[in-house]
Design a protein around this nucleic acid. Structure first.
Lengths: 142, 142
DNA sequence: TATTGTTATACTCTATAACTATA
DNA sequence: TATAGTTATAGAGTATAACAATA
């Protein structure tokens, strides 16, 4: 039985909001919010405050607050860049690495739900999601 | 080429965040935020404040503010229930119906991006999204 | 002059608690 | 007593503008 367009969209919205809720819940177990965890994951490689603001689509002043919070928790530290002393790079500490690993573990069951498909299904899902995102991207920029 | 689990998840997160941004942008064109539009769409049938709070997963006091805002804009009105005068039902006005229709139109291109698949692809996507949501749901409640 | 990051500030969103009016 | 809705209030998140340090 082929679903209607409305049903497809409802399914998509439902699946993604459930995923986001789970992400927020896992972050909360570490006394962090979603944005703080996103930043923590982003700094796999050291990044300047400004670069992080761009990737999080938020103002630089917010990054100051987010990094303050993570730094107080000992999960990241600021390092003044050698070549340009205006720039501060955010670097993950070993404790930060550990937290990211724990969060990955705790998201594993959720991620498995998204990826427990056969090879063929996986290719199909990736194709469809890519096509959706490409089409959406064309829309939003127009 | 089969995508890795990580790639699949990144695609999924990317597609859903782009969708959500587009929804917020369309809402903004009507001087509304996402939650206000969600409520406006929910009141296809009149609903009590309390029922709306449940569906929006927020406190009842927030619904008061959201409905205040929509009522000031003439998009909904409050109606005291005949059988229980404590209850106020939120009812969409003709202007509210019109706004919902406009938002539907403005989301059409985006929705088309999510549903422009052949019959077979559509069935497959629905199957996969359902399986994802079911699995996620099992996770979050545990 | 321009850029990076910070601070001060205000606005929005959300939750909690106390309140009212009804049941 | 219990429930529906409101109000007052406080906390978190975000954006803007002004600022200091550096380029």
């Amino acid at each position: 039985m082929s679903p209607t367009p409305t049903q497809l969209i409802e399914l998509f919205v439902l699946a993604s909001s459930t995923y986001y809720q789970e992400f927020a819940a896992v972050a909360d177990r570490h006394d962090l919010n979603s944005t703080q965890v996103k930043l923590l994951i982003l700094v796999r490689e050291p990044q300047s405050m400004r670069a992080l603001a761009r990737q999080l689509s938020c103002d630089a002043s917010n990054v100051t607050a987010i990094v303050d919070r993570l730094e107080r928790g000992g999960l990241v530290r600021r390092e003044v860049a050698a070549h340009d002393r205006r720039i501060k790079n955010v670097v993950r500490t070993p404790a930060g690495d550990e937290t990211v690993q724990l969060i990955r573990d705790q998201m594993q069951a959720t991620h498995q739900a998204l990826t427990s498909f056969t090879g063929d299904e996986r290719v199909m899902l990736a194709t469809l999601l890519t096509r959706m995102h490409t089409a959406l991207d064309g829309e939003t920029s127009g």
